Simulated assay, not measured.
Amino acid sequence: MSETRWKRSSNERSDNSEMQHRRIVIENSHGEKLVGVLHDTGSTETVVICHGFRSSKDRIPMPTIANVFEKAMISSFRFDFAGNGESQGSFEYGNYHREAEDLRSILQHLRGENRGSVVLLYAAKYKDVQTVVNISGRFFLERGIEMRLGKDYLKRIKENGFIDVRNRKGKFEYRVTEESLMDRIRTNTHEACLSIHENCRVLTVRGSNDMIVHVTEASEFAKYIKNHKLCLIEGADHDTSNRDHIRSALMMKSRI
């Protein structure tokens, strides 16, 4: 583990000029270095912000979420899962359980909140978090696969052992192996939700204009998590990229 401290430039500073960002590198259980940024306000609690699929700590809305917490004088830590952003390791398509272990390494280091399904799997396995905010998380993990991998993906991946995903211009983006695909399909979100302890408060945030994960999936979390609140933000998209939408969600967090 290593740490690099720096002060923000005058353009990055908020009203509190003493506030600092710290780049922190934490080793996971596989010996890979996970890179994150701590927004240190001196608060007694720290929010851990987990990015989504094929994203990173530096993509919207992660920095925006951290800045909203910063203005509220709450420390936060945003980081890259293994195989994403600056962190070491190889990107894997499913990988939910392994990313939950990455989160375990982060929390053990910080002891001090989005890939929604990952944080819920973590809360189901470990009982050391009191609050989880699940932003735009998918309940039915078997859905949305065809949108990325194309039709007959199961047949094609069994024939070839993998599927290469390309963008609209035909440029290679990432490879999905049969093992990683089955990891996603076999991940049981329903079982995980039932395993979350009633002392862990869960807030699910969903935008009414989410075009990636249908808004109705949010109500599934409410059915099975014992201590749960649902926040539907009118007009918000999947990434809740609008700062006002994020602020609305975090105001809801303070009331759960």
Rank of each mutant, 00 (worst) to 15 (best):
M1C: 06
M1T: 05
S2R: 01
S2Y: 01
S14N: 10
S14Y: 00
D15M: 13
E18W: 00
R22S: 14
V25E: 15
I26G: 02
H30L: 11
L38T: 07
L38G: 12
H39R: 11
D40C: 08
D40V: 08
T46W: 03
V48F: 02
C50H: 01
T64Q: 12
F69P: 09
K71R: 08
K71A: 10
S76C: 04
S76N: 04
S76P: 04
R78E: 07
F79E: 08
F81Y: 14
S90N: 09
S90W: 00
E92K: 11
N95A: 00
N95Y: 01
N95D: 02
R104E: 15
S105E: 08
Q108H: 12
H109R: 13
E113H: 05
V119M: 09
A124F: 05
K127W: 06
K127I: 10
V129Q: 01
V133W: 01
N134M: 09
G144Y: 07
Y153V: 09
Y153R: 05
K155F: 02
I157H: 07
K158I: 05
K158G: 06
E159I: 03
R166F: 09
Y174K: 03
L181C: 10
I185L: 15
N188F: 08
T189C: 15
E191D: 14
E191H: 13
I196D: 06
E198A: 07
C200S: 05
C200F: 02
V205W: 05
R206N: 13
N209H: 09
D210W: 04
I212H: 02
V215Y: 02
A236P: 15
D237S: 10
N242G: 00
M251W: 00
